[in-house]
């Protein structure tokens, strides 16, 4: 237990160190590539916070990413709204949380768990994407909205302007690192332990005085809020928002990032997001319709070969090694 915590912190510190020295070696373009991948990493961590701790799979998490993105775009593109960046981020977080709260309330307090939850969230994702396409007077329809300005705000005398590559890279890295650390602290502490108990045996946890539906709801809302934050950051960096940001494909890609990186580790999903996106770019430059095909294969392979993610290879090798030593 203690050793596991130490390992996690060690890996976390290594990643932070790598993120700090990376700008000394990388050019502006490479920085933006990693920056965008990190935003998706944050998105993956948000899903993992819910899925990893509750065992309940949300199959439409991109809906929250998309909601965050669209709210951010609409707020910052509207010249009448002052402090666009800050208000936009707040609105994005609040909007995603609000939708999650409504859906989550009905599902968790209605006793819906497991596969039923997965299905309803899948439908939610489908509908969000459709809404983004067909409500074109607001969302710009299929082509989305373009010209979203970079984040810029003043906070306590500090002027933050993310129109340049390096500041935006630093800003995003810092947010991702802080959020992942915070989520980790939450999930290894009291909150996460009770969630694990609920996952193990919800009735037992309730019989001990825990309000399980409420706890699941709050966790889900927090997870959605962070997904909304990631969406807001992404559209400002990319400068545009489009319906596929809330689409089913992104919803399933984020599941793969989490599953490959290692469910429940928070850090693994971030790394999974970075590496798989690199792979995706390489493969898609080859033939664009090859990626979904490969993605499908990855799903099947994960289930049958690597149910605990890439990191489990290391654990398994270690187990093998230990077993040998003991045998000698």
């Amino acid at each position: 237990m203690i050793a596991r915590d130490r390992n996690w912190l060690l890996i976390f510190a290594t990643c932070v160190a790598l993120a700090i020295i990376y700008p000394f070696f990388a050019g502006g373009y490479q920085l933006t590539v990693i920056r965008d991948a990190l935003i998706f990493g944050l998105f993956a961590a948000s899903l993992d916070f819910f899925w990893g701790r509750t065992g309940i799979l949300c199959f439409g998490h991109a809906a929250f990413f998309g909601i965050g993105g669209y709210i951010m775009a609409l707020v910052t593109l509207n010249d009448a709204i002052p402090f666009g960046s800050l208000l936009g981020i707040m609105g994005a977080v609040a909007g995603a949380a609000f939708v999650a709260a409504i859906i989550g309330y009905f599902l968790f307090f209605g006793g819906i768990r497991g596969s039923y939850f997965t299905i309803v969230t899948l439908a939610m994702g489908v509908i969000c994407q459709q809404a983004a396409v067909s409500w074109s007077s607001v969302t710009g329809g299929d082509s989305g909205l373009i010209g979203i300005p970079p984040i810029e705000f003043d906070l306590g005398g500090l002027h933050v302007d993310l129109s340049q590559d390096l500041p935006s890279y630093i800003f995003v890295s810092a947010i991702v690192a802080m959020t992942v650390l915070a989520l980790w602290l939450i999930s290894r502490g009291r909150w996460g332990t009770v969630l694990t108990a609920i996952q193990d045996n919800e009735i037992r946890a309730a019989a001990l005085g825990h309000n399980a539906p409420l706890r699941l709801l709050v966790t889900f809302v927090l997870s959605a809020a962070i997904a909304g934050l990631a969406g807001a950051l992404y559209v400002c960096m990319a400068g545009l928002v489009a319906p596929d940001l809330s689409g089913l494909l992104l919803s399933t890609e984020v599941i793969v990032w989490v599953a490959v990186g290692g469910r429940g580790t928070l850090l693994g999903p971030v790394l999974g997001a970075i590496f798989i996106q690199r792979a995706q770019q390489t493969i898609s430059s080859f033939n664009p319709s090859l990626w979904p095909l490969l993605l499908g294969c990855v799903f099947v392979i994960i289930v049958f070969v690597l149910p605990d993610g890439i990191l489990s290879i290391y654990a398994r090798l270690k187990g093998l090694f230990k077993g040998r030593r003991r045998a000698q």
Binding site: F59, S289, L293, F299, F304
Partner: peptide, 29 residues
């Protein structure tokens, strides 16, 4: 796929989704 995963509901979700993607892309190709 499915008969090997009766006791693993989340794995069934993931694997059948993978099959779904493969079938879609296979038809498109």
């Amino acid at each position: 796929i499915i008969r090997h995963l009766y006791s693993r509901p989340v794995s069934t979700v993931l694997a059948t989704w993978g099959v779904s993607l493969i079938l879609q892309q296979g038809l498109e190709l």
